[in-house]
Design a binder for these strands. Structure first.
Lengths: 328, 328
DNA sequence: CTAGTTACTGAAACTAGTTACATCGATCAA
DNA sequence: TTGATCGATGTAACTAGTTTCAGTAACTAG
């Protein structure tokens, strides 16, 4: 099924393709000529080919986003923030999910580069990979989200939470709620997780509370949550509060606690990362990231594209509810 | 910043652009020529321009998705399903969010058409709009999700839940739990909402339970949930169970109930649409749609593109938990 | 030793548009 | 009346690739 081209419109209107282009994009054209062209456009149902425009422009008007998994309150809101700004600027969002297949990321970045995206937001991988770095070097603004800030390189920006502060915020709240024996769940060994753990550990240490090495367990799949919680609770020292440093595991860890018949916060306190729709209803205390705003900023960095690398750090915010045994 | 083109690679390798193209896409090329070309590709960091390929092919390798709002368990899982199939087929997903601005949808469809997407998934709007219909007529497979099946037209497919069955399923369960006085919350007057209401009403009627007209209230924004619930409870007849026919309002409606100090299911039963991550933890009974599978099917319809229109209807599934006052 | 076949390669045409430049007629000032 | 200017339009070159066609060289068969 051959589509209508600018040439077809030109023929129908009895003008050249150049004139049609001028009518469509605003050039000097006599009024009745323009009318004839618009008429032909409507009659032939002509839809210009944006791909062709893009190849001429050197790049498309699309922002690429590479994400591990949309389920995860943080990434979902990030996406929404990116999309909002993109939409306001007439940009589209192209989206690729790695579904946790590490290694797939490089291929996705390559694909985005082939699509000549206007900019790229990368949220996966432990650090900035070589492919992304080359893409930035090639002139495409790239924003690394929630990873360690990359080396100083043009077009390579970063948007991240102050993870150490997040850990400290949790430590402060946990202590304020009267807890002294803390157990921690993280997911994987990502730098962001390490920073949160460090912040928590230091925050606790400043009040003389020590976080034992075996009181921190990493869960890389939801199915492991039950076992991890069991291991944590089996330690000789009884646990006052369970701190979950990853929003991605909140459901699984919370469920594991409930499944063991523990009542929150009476039997055990619970704090986690990232606010979510059901947190108020469940009374779960969280340390929230401004994920929507981070997404907006990421998109703004791409659209504004300051030459020199920008490094944006966001402040975490404690939303105290009931799950940590807050006094009312 | 000028990017490396196939011509640059050709010059560097001492061959013509045609030969480079053949090396890259698999044509008959002498081995040492190919080696020289690959060498030049690596040395110059050449990334082929997919846009150019697409313009030649007549269409891109991207699936367009138009959605109201990603927050909503149904749409999120639908997206994930689409993405999974797209990814497996080397396709990308291009995403546009209408953010509930009705009318914006037509512009989004137009944009997707300009991008020459391989296919389009539309989930917004009350019915199939003219623009989408024209796009299908132009040869782009379009899948209408969760709307009334469009007229019989080539390339225009539909994927939907059997909404009447969903309503009946709810009626059956509500009755089985011993409830007789039912109140209902819907969102907007979309056909899917009407069908669910009809199914519910008929299911109840068959057991002699009448659903009063003023026992059904529509909420089109989360903020209205409190007022709507108040109005429902203010009716002379006491309400046994509140049925929420839209997954998008689950949080708001549930919270409104809790905010009034009602205990679920002791004071009032609660059933809603669409399963979600926290439903097991909260013990909320739902009628689930196979949203992930529906997304996969939508993508498969686009990739497989049967000429004749396909109309896929999915069966809802009741997941009984505790919120409806289930006997154990 | 020649004709036919095959493998490889390049020139040129093509995709669907944009844009620089040339052209043409009309208007206007000298 | 003539030269200059201007507005409107077409021609042709350009974007970055793919593909067809033709030609060359090498190889095989008779």
């Amino acid at each position: 099924m051959k589509r209508t081209t600018i040439g077809d419109v030109a023929t129908a209107a009895g003008v050249s393709a150049a004139t049609v282009s001028r009518v469509l994009n605003g050039g000097a054209v006599k009024e009745d000529t323009a009318t004839r062209v618009w008429d032909a456009v409507a009659r032939l149902d002509y839809t210009p080919n944006a791909l062709t425009k893009s190849i001429f422009a050197g790049r498309s008007n699309t922002i690429g986003v590479i994400i591990d998994d949309l389920r995860s309150p943080f990434y979902l809101d990030l996406m929404r923030g990116i999309d909002e700004v993109a939409d306001a600027n007439g940009s589209l969002v192209m989206f690729a999910n790695t579904f946790h297949r590490s290694g797939h990321e490089v291929a996705q970045v390559q694909t985005m580069d082939e699509q000549r995206v206007r900019g790229l937001v990368v949220t996966t991988g432990d650090s900035t990979d070589e492919r992304t770095r080359r893409m930035a070097a090639g002139g495409t603004p790239c924003v690394i989200v929630a990873r360690p800030a990359p080396e100083d390189q043009a077009n390579l920006h970063s948007v991240a939470l102050d993870n150490v502060a997040a850990g400290r915020l949790m430590a402060g709240h946990v202590l304020a709620c009267g807890h002294r024996s803390v157990a921690v769940v993280v997911s994987g060994g990502r730098p962001s997780q390490r920073d949160r753990t460090d912040g928590l550990r230091r925050g606790l240490a400043e009040s003389g509370v020590r976080l034992a090495a075996d009181a921190v367990i990493s869960i890389d799949r939801d199915e492991r949550a039950d076992a991890a919680v069991a291991a944590l609770l089996a330690r000789p020292e009884p646990v006052d509060v369970l701190v979950c440093l990853t929003g991605r595991r909140t459901v699984a860890v919370h469920s594991a606690l409930i499944a063991r018949g523990l009542s929150i916060p009476d039997d055990i306190g619970f704090v986690t990362m990232d606010d979510f729709a059901w947190a108020p209803a469940l009374g779960i205390t969280v340390v929230a990231q401004p994920s929507y705003r981070m997404g907006q900023k990421a998109a703004e960095l791409i659209i504004g594209n300051p030459g020199e690398p920008a490094r944006l750090t966001f402040r975490p915010e404690l939303i105290a509810r009931r799950s940590c045994g807050e006094r009312r």
